[in-house]
Design a binder for these strands. Sequence first.
DNA 1: GATGAATGAGGCTTCATTCAT
DNA 2: CATGAATGAAGCCTCATTCAT
Lengths: 199, 199, 199, 199
Amino acid sequence: MDSGNKRDDIMQAALELIAMQGFHNAPISEIATKAGVAAGTIYRYFENKDLLILELYNDLGDTIGEAVRKGYPVEKSIGERFIFLLDRLFEYFLQHPLHFRYMEQYFNSPYGISLRREKALGKFDREDIIQEILEEGVSQKIMKDLPVEVLFALICGPMVVLLRDHILGFVVLDRETVGKVTEACWDAVRRSSGESAME
Amino acid sequence: MDSGNKRDDIMQAALELIAMQGFHNAPISEIATKAGVAAGTIYRYFENKDLLILELYNDLGDTIGEAVRKGYPVEKSIGERFIFLLDRLFEYFLQHPLHFRYMEQYFNSPYGISLRREKALGKFDREDIIQEILEEGVSQKIMKDLPVEVLFALICGPMVVLLRDHILGFVVLDRETVGKVTEACWDAVRRSSGESAME
Amino acid sequence: MDSGNKRDDIMQAALELIAMQGFHNAPISEIATKAGVAAGTIYRYFENKDLLILELYNDLGDTIGEAVRKGYPVEKSIGERFIFLLDRLFEYFLQHPLHFRYMEQYFNSPYGISLRREKALGKFDREDIIQEILEEGVSQKIMKDLPVEVLFALICGPMVVLLRDHILGFVVLDRETVGKVTEACWDAVRRSSGESAME
Amino acid sequence: MDSGNKRDDIMQAALELIAMQGFHNAPISEIATKAGVAAGTIYRYFENKDLLILELYNDLGDTIGEAVRKGYPVEKSIGERFIFLLDRLFEYFLQHPLHFRYMEQYFNSPYGISLRREKALGKFDREDIIQEILEEGVSQKIMKDLPVEVLFALICGPMVVLLRDHILGFVVLDRETVGKVTEACWDAVRRSSGESAME
DNA sequence: GATGAATGAGGCTTCATTCAT
DNA sequence: CATGAATGAAGCCTCATTCAT
C-alpha cells in the first residue's frame, strides 16, 4: 500500500483490517505491515490506537455525509427525500463495503456507545439529515407518532442487517431489491392506511 | 455464584461479563473468579474460551427459542402469529437484557459471522419459527415478494437497534411503544395497500 | 536465585539489579531472568513495576529500622545514643551495601521525592528515631540551634557520601574511620565550645 | 530558546529538561523542541545523548569552578578560605538550582560513577580547590586526621542534602542558616578541642 | 549544515492455557 | 476432580538514532 501519503496508507490499512477483523484482531503491528511502514511510524500520525480509530471514524463519517447529501432534493416531498436518502446510503455502502463494516464495528464497540451517549446528551452536533426528515414527517403527521429514535431504528435497523448480509454474501442486494426495501421502510414509518395485523 | 453446578456457574459468569464488557474484556481469570472456581477448572468443562463462547451462544439460543415458542398460537392468522412472536421476543429481551447483549456481541463478532455462514450453507438447522412465518406469508401473498432474508432484516433490524438503545438508556421501550413498533414491522413486511413514497 | 519463595526471589533480584544499575537499567525482563521466573510471573506478585519498587523500599525500610533500633540504649545520654545510632547505620549499610544503594536510588528518584513531600506534609509517620534525638538535643540546648532538617543533613549527608564512596571502592571505611566520622558528625551538630573558623 | 548559537541552545535545553525531569524523562526530541532545532541537528553537535550529557557536565563543572574561585582569598587563613568556599558554593547553587539538580542527577547516575572511578584512578585532573584546602588543613594539623575523601564527605554531604531539600522546598536556606551550616561543617572537619560525645 | 520522517529495538503489561500438586 | 501458580506470546507504545532531502 503506497499512495505517496503515509498517513493515508495507515488509515487505509487500518480501515481494511478493522473492517474485516474487528478492532481486537487488528494489531498495530499488522496495520503497520499492511501500510508498508514501521509500527513506530503510526505514532507519528496518531497519538495512539484509539485516536487512530476515532479519526478514521470521523473521516468516514464526513465522507459518507457528503456523498449522501450530494444532490439531495430539498424541494421535493418528504417521501421522495426519504427514498432518496435511503437509496443513497444503500448505494454508498454497497460501493464501499469496508466503510460499512468499519462503521458497524465502531458502533458496536465501546467507542460507539460513548459516542451515542454524547449524542444523546446533545454534546454532539453533526447535523443529521435523516433525523431532520423524521422530525418533519412526524410534525406533518405523515409519519407515525413515534419518537424519532424509534423511527430511526425502523429505517437503520433493516439497512444495517441487509448490508451486512450482503457484504458477507448471505443476500444479494440488487438495485430492485434495494428499491423494494426502501419502500418497505417507508411503509414502516409512514402513518399507515389502516388494516392492522390483528384484524 | 454457586448453583451447585460448576458448569452453570461458569456459563452464567461468562454471560454476565461478556454481555457487559465484551469478549475481549472478559478474561478467563475474571470469569473464573465470578463463577467461584479456579481458572483451570473452566478448562475441564470447556476446551477453550472460544468453545465456551459458542456453547453459551447455543444454550441461550435454545432458551430463547423455547421461551418464544411457549403459547405460540399455531392456529391463528399469520398476522396474529407474527405480532405474537415479535412481542414475545421484545418481552423476553427486555426481561433478559444480558441475553440480548450477549447475542448481539456474538453476532457482531467473527464467531457470529462464521455461524451465519454455516447457516447460509444449510449446515445449521435449528428450526426457525420466524422464517416459517415469513415463508408462509410470502407464499400466501400476504407479505411482500422479497427473499425471506430481506423480510427477516425488516423485522430483526429495528428490534435489535431498539433493544440496544433501550438497554443503553437511549430510548424507553414501554409496552405501548413495543406495540406500535411491531405494527410498524408488520407494515414493513406486509403487501402494502398502495400509495408509494414517490407519489 | 531460588529461595523456595518466588516473591522473595523477585524482590531480591530487583534489589540487586536496581541497586547496581538504577531503576531505568533494571527492566522487568532482566529482573525475571535473574529471579528465575517468567516475566509474567512478576505480575502475580506485584501489580506493576512501580509497586514492586515501592514495596521493596518499604520492606527495606522496615528491616533497616529494626536492625538499627535493636539494643538502642534509651537510658543513655544523648551523645551516646547519637553515636550508637550512627554506628549502627554505618554497620548495617556496610554489611548490606545493596540495601544502601537501593535506598539511595530510591531517594534520588521521583519516587523518593514524592515520598519526601508526603513526609513533609506529615502524611508519613514511620517514627524516626534520629529525628527524636535531634529534637531532644535541640530542646536541651546540647545541639546547635538549627532546624531539625538541617541537623539531619549534617549527619546523613556525610554518611551517604561516605557509604557510596566506600561501596564503589573510593574510600575504605574501617571501624576506626567510622568512629572518627561519627565523632565528626557529633562535632557538627553539637553546640560548639567556641573558636569559629573566622578567628 | 535562541542564543544565536545552536550548540548553546541545545545544551541549555538539555540542562533544563534533565535537571527538572531526569535523564530518562528528557528525550532527545523534547530537548530539540525546547532548543528550537531539529532532533537530527543535535547529532551534528554531539555524537550521542551520553556525550551530550557528559559535555554538559564538564561545562557546568568549569563554570561552577570559575564562579567559586573568583575572589578566592589565597592569603587568608585556612578557616577563612574554607568558609569562603562553602559560602560561594551555596550561593552559586542557590542562584543556579538547575545546575545543582543537573550535577546531582549526574553523580547519581552510572555516568557519575564511572567519572568517580576515573577520578580515583587519577585519570581526572581538574584541580580541586577544596581538596587543596583539606590537604593543607590536614598537614597543618588544623583539621582532623582523616583521609581527604572523608573530610570532603563531611562538607559536601550536608551541602548536597540541604541544597536538594531547599530546591524541593523542604527547608529554607536563608543567609543566616547557610552561615551556621558552614560553621557546622567547619566544626566537623577541624581538629576539635575536646569533649567527645561519649563523655 | 539542517531537517524531521522513519525506523525498530526494547520496555511494560495482559491473559489464554498448562500442569504439578 | 479442582486448583491456581506459572508461563510466554503478543499487544501497545517510546525514543535514540539514521538518512534522504
